[in-house]
Every structure is written in structure tokens, then in C-alpha cells.
Design a protein around this nucleic acid. Structure first.
Lengths: 207, 207
DNA sequence: TATTACAGACCATATGACCGGTTTGTAAAT
DNA sequence: ATTTACAAACCGGTCATATGGTCTGTAATA
């Protein structure tokens, strides 16, 4: 605690750099915490500790807890967009395209980020301010994914029709992911049901 | 507090009756609280107050918070089972049967009880003891509903095939219910998508 | 020197667990 | 039928702990 010297050069940083560094550390720690222990247990103290940052620094950049959370969620949204973009770009052109698309959706909604987002929406149910600030983030993200999916998959077919099928497929995948994530896998010798589900999803998306 | 007299007959109750009454009040209050404010905010104090029961009485019957929660969840399961039974019994025999079945599923998974259960599974993610005690309750309930659905709907067709389709349909409905419950309804002039979704679900269940 | 980033203490509040004492019901002893 | 002894239900308070928000002081940067 009396530690003032540094092993290597202390290097003079600009204020902006200092801020950016600690803010980044805090947001990363917050995302990690949201995924691991959920909203309620993501306390300002634990985040600061996880980030290796003093509580003062934390409260300096994010005076109220909700600020910290919302900023972290915004960052999560950006990361998710980037990941989705990357996966969608890599989709094959040929026959296996639809199947690959569905796999992509599935991988997106099986990610820890989805888990965290469920926890967040549950929490937001009781927290009006959190809810209000979550809505636009979710809306933008949904629009982005929808637009991407449309442009990539709908082969000139009726857009409105496809939109509805897409929405349904996403909901179904969400439901499956929800079960997978939060409830116990039976795993009692049964085979992996995913291939069968994917078949049904293909059927839905293809009409 | 000096109130000892009663307006009408105080009627001497047996100990068992006294216990049953307060336990019932406590469980009802807990369920109500779980639905309204979720697991984290369902505190022993607030439940006692909601039930109109002293803190002492609460801690007497349910020494630890988790006891109270689990007992309430068990009761929820019973209520849900009863409600499902009743709805399924009332299903029509004729052509509209499959559609009515789907509507029943939808109504079950749109109920406040479903909301509460999602909140509970989210909470259980961080609470090993709660998780362990939730698993058997969920398992039994799932088995019960599955058996009921099978016996009522599968018209001599392949049971295994139907089971998979049923599981998928339930997941899809869960995903839809999840969105409905926790995320903002766009509601911007769009028509109710449910009829269309029901159509897709019928398609899935019928093969 | 002035401003910004940071550090750590402080405070009010809420919560779960726990406890000593009191009341009510039950049943044995008289 | 009364009285007495005991157990169960109930009451209200305390305690340790955790949390969010705030505040004063210090160090780094401009």
C-alpha cells in the first residue's frame, strides 16, 4: 500500500488515456460480472475489485450503478453486432446456406451474452430506469440483425412474410437457448436434439 | 397491541389449524411476491408483512429464506398442474383440437407463473441450493405435462417423433412468451402476430 | 497553479440469521 | 372438572454483513 515506485518506467500518460484505460477495465469487468453472476450480484464494489480499480475511480467515472451497467450493456451490444457481422459474412453461398444461417443464429443465442441479456431483462422488470435505458439498445440491435438477415437470406421473396418467419424462428431459438442455459439438461442417454430442431427451423424459414 | 378481545367468536383453533393457516398465508404471499418483484427482492420481511404475519411466525415455520421460497415453488407447481389439467380436460374433440391445444400451451406459458419461473431459474443460476431444489420440481412438472399432452394429442402416431415436436413447440412458445413478457412490445401499429405463429406451430405439431 | 483522475473512508439503509421471552393449545395429573 | 406441566406457535428486537451513494484528501496531468 506504500508502494509508490514502479518496476519499469512509470511513463507519463495523458488524462484521456488514463480515463480510457480505467473505463475500459471497468466495462470489461462489468460485462464479465453480468455474465457470471447476473445483475443483482453485480455490485459496484465487486466490479471495481474485479477490474483492479479503486472504488473512488469507479464512482468517479460512473457515479451511479445504473450508469456502469448501461454503459457495459452498450458495449456488449457493439461486441455482439461485430460478432454477428463476422459470422454472417462468412456464410457459405451454396446449398448449405440456410442451415449455416440457422447455426449462426443458434450460436449467437447460446453465447454467454444471451444469458447475460436474459438476466438483464429479468432485472429490468423491477427497475424502470434500467428498463428505459435498455429498450433503445435492444431495439437497435434487433433492427440491425433483422436487416442483416433479410439482406442475406431473403432471395427476393416477400419481405414481410420472411420477417414474420424470421421473428418466429428467433423466438424459438431463444426458447431453446433458454432451456439449454437455465434448466438442467436431461442428458440421460438421449441424443442431441439440435439436428432435429434445426431441420424444423429450416422448414419454418423456407416456408 | 393490547387488543385481546375479538369482534366475533374467537373460536379456539387446534394448533395444526393455526399452523396451516399461517403457512398458507406465507406461501401465498411468497408466490405473489415472486411474481411481482422476483426472487432477489422477495425478502423474508416483506413476505411476512405481505402475509400479515409476524417475523417470528415466519422464521418459526421457515427458518431459512430458501425454505420459504422452495415451499412456495412446490405449491406453484401444484397450482400449475391443476390449472393445466383443467384446461386440457376442456379441450374440444373435433377439428379445432390442435389449435385449442396450442392456445392452451400459450396461455400456460403466458401466465404470471411462467414469468415467476423464469425469474427463479435466473436466480437459481447463482444459488446452488435453490437450483438443486428446483430441479426435481421442474422435472416432475415437465414429465406430467408431457404425459398429458401425449395421451391427449398423439393419435396413435409415433410417440418419440411427437415428443420431439412437442418439445420444440414448447421451446418456441417459451421464447415467444419470454419476448412478450420481458421485452418491449413494438406495438407500433403492427398487427398481433400470434395467429400467424399459431399457424406455424400447428404445422410443426402436425408434421 | 488549476484541473482532472483517483483513493479510501464514511454513512444510511436493508437484509438474513438468530435469540430470549410470551402466548396459546394439549394433555397428563389431581 | 381443575390444575399443572409441557410443547408448539408466535412476537419483536439485535447483530453482523453488504451495498449504494457521498465526501474529503491525494496524486497525476495540463
Amino acid at each position: 500500500m506504500t508502494q509508490t515506485r514502479r518496476v519499469s518506467a512509470p511513463r507519463r500518460r495523458t488524462q484521456e488515456e488514463r480515463s480510457a484505460a480505467t473505463i475500459s477495465k471497468l466495462l470489461d469487468a462489468t460485462i464479465e460480472s453480468l455474465i457470471e453472476v447476473g445483475y443483482e450480484h453485480t455490485t459496484s464494489r465487486s466490479v471495481a475489485e474485479r477490474a483492479g480499480v479503486s472504488r473512488g475511480a469507479q464512482s468517479h467515472h460512473f457515479p451511479r450503478r445504473v450508469d456502469l451497467i448501461v454503459s457495459a450493456v452498450e458495449r456488449m451490444g457493439q461486441l455482439l453486432q461485430a460478432a454477428a457481422m463476422q459470422e454472417l459474412e462468412a456464410l457459405p453461398r451454396g446449398a448449405g446456406r440456410r442451415q449455416a444461417t440457422i447455426d449462426t443464429l443458434w450460436s449467437q443465442f447460446s453465447s454467454p451474452v444471451f444469458i447475460a441479456s436474459v438476466k438483464l431483462w429479468v432485472a429490468a422488470q423491477e427497475d424502470p430506469e434500467l428498463y428505459e435505458r435498455l429498450v433503445p439498445i435492444e431495439r437497435d440491435l434487433g433492427r440491425f440483425l433483422m436487416a442483416r438477415m433479410e439482406s442475406l437470406v431473403a432471395d427476393g421473396a416477400d419481405r414481410s412474410e420472411y420477417a414474420k418467419r424470421y421473428a418466429f424462428a428467433v423466438s424459438a431459438i431463444r426458447g431453446l437457448a433458454l432451456m439449454e442455459a437455465f434448466e438442467p439438461r436431461p442428458a440421460n442417454g438421449r441424443e442431441d436434439p439440435w439436428p432435429y430442431y434445426r431441420e424444423l427451423l429450416e422448414q419454418i424459414l423456407s416456408g
